[in-house]
Design a protein around this nucleic acid. Sequence first.
DNA 1: TGCGGCTAATTGTCTATACAATAAAATCCT
DNA 2: AGGATTTTATTGTATAGACAATTAGCCGCA
Lengths: 208, 208
Amino acid sequence: MPQIEAIELDGHGPVYDQIKRAVTAQIRSGAWKPGDRLPSEADLSRSLATARMTVNRALRELTEDGLLVRRRRAGTFVAQPDAPAALLKIVDMAKAIPARGQAYGYICETDDTVPASPGIAKAMRLPPGARLQHVECLHTADGEIVEFEERWINLALLPGAAQAGFDTEGPGGWLLRAAPWTEAEHTVSAVNADADLARRLGVEPGAA
Amino acid sequence: MPQIEAIELDGHGPVYDQIKRAVTAQIRSGAWKPGDRLPSEADLSRSLATARMTVNRALRELTEDGLLVRRRRAGTFVAQPDAPAALLKIVDMAKAIPARGQAYGYICETDDTVPASPGIAKAMRLPPGARLQHVECLHTADGEIVEFEERWINLALLPGAAQAGFDTEGPGGWLLRAAPWTEAEHTVSAVNADADLARRLGVEPGAA
DNA sequence: TGCGGCTAATTGTCTATACAATAAAATCCT
DNA sequence: AGGATTTTATTGTATAGACAATTAGCCGCA
């Protein structure tokens, strides 16, 4: 089981930001690894001598950024990294358009692994034939097509993208796999975490 | 000067979410238009009988979503809609990658207005020759090219994209134009708002 | 008029506390 | 043992109050 060390603030800027940086630093440095459980808000607020609300804001925002995953009673965990970064922006797009009063739609036309064509390879400074994930999708607002987007993702750097499935189910279905698990029980808690994330991602956009 | 009516909560879910929905509804319905000033947090918390922190969280999150713009002492304004939606995801990408401990880079290769080629026109269900904004950019993490992205934006629906300038300065430079202005003084407050947004967008990623 | 300093309105953050919601873990009862 | 129930740890939200930071607007003065 991971032993979580105490973190320290740097006195620079708002406290919640200091906490965010400190936690981020722990994760970046590898001191806290994916799946590790963080100290509880109560513990952190005690050891940092701040109010729990401040810790809460920091952890809540990091969760929003996809760096952490939280579950009531279970605790706060370092999220599985890697692929979510590629998808956050889609989530964001899906969130931003309804906020403007329009019904957002996302249609994925193609999503497959292809060797880089000479033209794309040149654009990406890759050797021709490198494995790429090719995604074509449409963003619609109120049924009208706002944007056509074509992407080539370097699978050498983002291996998770191949299994991501950017299809019509939307990104939520994929993000499921970014769940936290404690070292001991893989399957069980992974299922739970999936349900948790699914709820988070499914309910929020629907409500707004 | 716009007369802002009181808003009402619906008793559904967390209060900060109710406030978010209520404000969003006002904006969607057109009751609050871009540039309009909202009641102050103090006024809202009084008229809604909630704590100011709760109102603050709601307005802060809506600001994060790009729906509002806030300035100390000046107040909270309905943001200029429209084009920011297309860019939020870039901002998000720029934020998400450094959060994972890598240096994010954004290189825009082309950004011009073109008539739709037959192939693209078909994909977007548009007549060939429709005006599109064509953007090609690279997303890099630690200098390595993670993703090549090509986009065609329907200028008929997002006219602002043409002047957006998705160039190497990054999206921040563009978002400047999404500033709020009171009906009376265009130029002056627009400049101020620019400075404000610039700070917001320039400082946050730099700190993290 | 124009400039400079003061005032005060507004947002931004922090604290301490409280209670609700959730679900893991322990306990009890059969 | 095993299933039901109770306990309890943890996050989620709400509140009231306080002070800091920013800056628009006002007032005075040259």
